[in-house]
Amino acid sequence: MPVVQVEDVHKRFGAVEVLKGIDLTVERGEVIAIIGRSGSGKSTLLRCINGLEQIQSGRIEVSGHVIDASGKGLRDLRKDVGIVFQSYNLFPHLRVGENIMLAPRVVLGVSKAEALSRARETLAEVGLAERFDAWPDNLSGGQQQRVAIARSLAMRPKVMLFDEVTSALDPELTGEVLATMERLAEHGMTMLLVTHEMAFARRVATTTVFMHQGRVWEMGPSERIFGSPQTPELRQFLGSGLK
């Protein structure tokens, strides 16, 4: 059974239709990269999958939770879907460890001991075990982003969404975040990532989706998408990326 199933999803902002009938299926353990120009709808699609944007028609199912145009049942769905943003969005009034423990404690109602062990475990997974007591302000951008990943992982999501998570980072900090994501992929996490890191998408993603003008323009195994693009739009997009 697929973890994420997107069927004929339409999304408008005012008069502008940004998603014009998207179909997408993500199987367990799959890593899917979504590439495309700014404005192609790729971030919007990701945000629709955990209900941050409401869809006008169509259907999204994530591990048994259904989102439709009514927008009901969002909280249950979000417990199973982690999302990491470009701008990290850590809670600045809480230390690193508290940032991670808060949602499991408050939203899932796990015990303090359990939340603590989840925080230590996920921080170790992103390579920041020793920063448990640090303030977010005192971390580098790359470290903050890894804490944000740990914060999502502590909810034990069935799928992780990454929305251009390295776009705000210096090249040298990008590497540490990508390495963290690659390790997650190797551990079998189901992942959907919107990215401009083409080399990373090609190497790590099992499938790559090229979005263009609100549609899935071309999709397939990453090797084929990058190795022998079929449509002129994708060829042009990849070509312009190399220059």
Partner: peptide, 9 residues
């Protein structure tokens, strides 16, 4: 947004 995404009410 970040707290909505973590399913906070």
């Amino acid at each position: 947004e970040a707290s909505s995404a973590l399913a906070f009410s």
